[in-house]
Design a protein around this nucleic acid. Structure first.
Length: 308
DNA sequence: ACCCAGGATCTAC
DNA sequence: GTAGATCATGGG
């Protein structure tokens, strides 16, 4: 244990690190290079630097076998076939499947997925990432050799995701002090329940957790239990489903029925393409608006209000 | 100062 | 069973 390993895997199609790491399924990977596609981060209790160039994936990590990383990145699933099947079932999804065509649904640890998506409720992705990092720093173990991996890329030690035991023993008030907010109780309760009941394996079991409702349960089914038929409906999916398919934004049941009947066991992939596509173009639109506001000089014309 | 974010829960009808 | 208020925090 403790050996740094490196794997080079060639001939990979339908793969893009930005799509994979920025599509909202994981929260511990960050882009490190400006031009080259390099990500650093952690999966469970392993730290790694990931590169993808052309069709070649390079993984330098603090451990794990090639088999583990192939599974983590879902390399043995044919995403070209998935996309063709989705588009055949519904041509309207073609733009989204092309836009996020390099998405892979990662093979993540169940407990990490549960806690991460409990934190995700009514929260935004940048803050979810911060919350999870502070949890790892406080309750996770230092990842051995993570500082020796590539010191110019990963400049400080990384921490493993906390074990169920460590979060079960954590004081709820301490989580509150770490700005975990009202979700603090959900987190410590979930860790205790996970330890007592064992790993949940169905949507029904997940819904018995306090802090896990239908949407979070579906995310955990998709990302933690690899139920690729799950179709999590969040605020972004509501918007794209109403915009593209004309659903009432509050008709969540209708959207889920549509996805199930149209996409079946591939509904989860469809959801990821739709989520990434719509959220990303909305963000770019927002940035463009901000730029044009500055150019017009509209943003600076307000006098600074005096404070009392 | 305001609305929103990968929502869930509690209460009141 | 379901509409409405509330939850803690900070991004934009």
């Amino acid at each position: 244990m403790g050996e740094i390993v490196e794997f080079v895997i060639e001939g990979i199609k339908d793969f893009d690190l930005t799509h994979i790491f920025e599509c909202g399924q994981c929260f511990r990977w960050t882009r490190r290079g400006a031009s080259v596609c390099v990500y650093g981060g952690a999966a469970g209790d392993l730290a790694a630097v990931i590169r993808f160039d052309g069709d070649t994936l390079t993984i330098k990590s603090t451990g794990g076998s090639e088999k583990f990383w192939r599974g983590y990145f879902d390399l043995d699933t044919d995403y070209g076939e998935i996309k063709r099947t989705l588009i055949a079932a519904d041509p309207l999804i073609a733009p989204a499947a092309a836009y996020g065509g390099g998405i892979r649904i990662l093979n993540q640890k169940l407990f990490e997925t549960i806690i991460s998506f409990v934190i995700s409720q009514n929260n935004n992705i940048p803050r979810i990432r911060k919350n999870i990092e502070s949890l790892c720093r406080r309750y996770g173990n230092v990842i051995e050799n993570s500082d020796a991996l590539e010191p110019e890329i990963i400049t400080e030690p990384m921490y493993a995701f906390p074990s169920p035991e460590s979060l079960a023993e954590a004081k709820t008030c301490e989580l509150e002090n770490m700005k975990l907010g009202y979700r603090s109780q959900y987190i410590t309760d979930a860790a205790k329940k996970f330890l007592e009941d064992g790993a949940p394996s169905s949507r029904e079991e997940l819904l018995e957790y306090r802090g896990i409702g239908p949407k979070v349960a579906d995310c955990i089914m998709l990302f933690g239990l690899r139920d690729t038929g799950a179709f999590p409906v969040d605020t972004w999916v509501k918007q794209v489903m109403s915009g593209v398919y004309g659903f009432d934004p509050d008709d969540v049941v209708g959207m889920m029925n549509f996805a199930k009947s149209r996409f079946g066991r591939f509904a989860g992939y469809a959801q990821q393409y739709l989520f990434y596509y719509y959220r990303d173009i909305q963000r770019q639109k927002q940035q463009a608006d901000n730029l044009s506001n500055n150019k017009n000089g509209c943003a600076d014309t307000h006098a600074v209000p005096e404070k009392s």
